[in-house]
Amino acid sequence: MTRGRVVAVILAAVLLIAGAFALGRVAAGTAPTPTTDSAAAGFLRDMQVHHAQAVEMALLVRDRTDDETVRTIAYDMAVTQAGQSGAMYGLLDAWDLPQRSAQRAMAWTELPALDGSDSGHQMDPDAPGGMPGLATDAEVAELEAATGDAAVRLFLKLMIAHHEGGVEMADAVLARTDVPQVVTLAEGIRRAQQAEIDAMTQLLAALPPE
């Protein structure tokens, strides 16, 4: 990626984050404030961390392939997820809730569902970072070292798993909160990431054999 393209990506992400942060603060005033230990707050915190790794991997693969389809998907992921992270940060800020919690990652999935059930969404505490779909440090380092088709293949495999984890997290919070802003965010994340899973699965299948 040229220096100009790097700057363009960063500026687009910054502008989107700033706009999303502002929209998050405005939207936050239209519903009762969730508590810091609620599923809504826990999801907003954990999904920011989850999104941060997706942005990192998307920017890594853009530097490592000339495939314009993959580069476009990676750019869209980086900008979209950075914007969503800004909105999530803005909601927590507007509600005067901390951006970090003393609770372990995904502890909010142990809360009962709105219907009183356990909803079956408790997460694996041994997953990397305690969150479903996160790549390990070694996998991210492998992606950073890869080039060409090898980088694309690894990125697609890692990001499909990452998105599957994101969908799982969205489903978990939708079972546990009726806070309108969080429901809207989670539904958007689930819808977009499932569509990207389908697209990336097709791209992976079309790659030449290893």
Rank of each mutant, 00 (worst) to 15 (best):
A146D: 02
A145P: 00
P209E: 15
D124I: 10
A52N: 12
V79H: 02
D63K: 03
A58W: 07
E142T: 11
K157E: 15
E142S: 14
T69Y: 04
R62Q: 12
D137G: 01
F43D: 07
A78I: 04
A28H: 06
A141W: 03
L174A: 00
E196F: 03
Q81T: 03
T69Q: 14
L154K: 10
E168F: 03
P32R: 12
A22K: 02
A172D: 06
P34E: 06
A105M: 13
D171M: 01
V49K: 07
G83T: 08
A58N: 09
F43T: 07
H51N: 10
A8L: 12
L91A: 04
A31C: 08
I17K: 04
M169H: 08
M106R: 11
M47W: 07
E68D: 12
D149E: 14
Q99E: 06
P125Y: 14
L134K: 13
D178A: 14
V6Q: 13
G4D: 15
H51L: 06
A78G: 06
T109R: 12
A87Y: 13
V183I: 07
D178M: 04
L185M: 07
D37R: 06
A94E: 10
R64K: 13
A82G: 15
R45K: 06
R100Q: 06
A22R: 10
L207M: 14
A113Q: 00
A12Q: 13
A151Y: 01
E139G: 04
L174R: 02
E142F: 01
A8S: 15
E168R: 14
E187I: 00
T30D: 13
Q84E: 12
S119D: 14
P34G: 06
E142D: 15
L154P: 05
P98Q: 02
H121Q: 03
L23F: 08
V182H: 06
S117E: 02
D96L: 01
M123G: 08
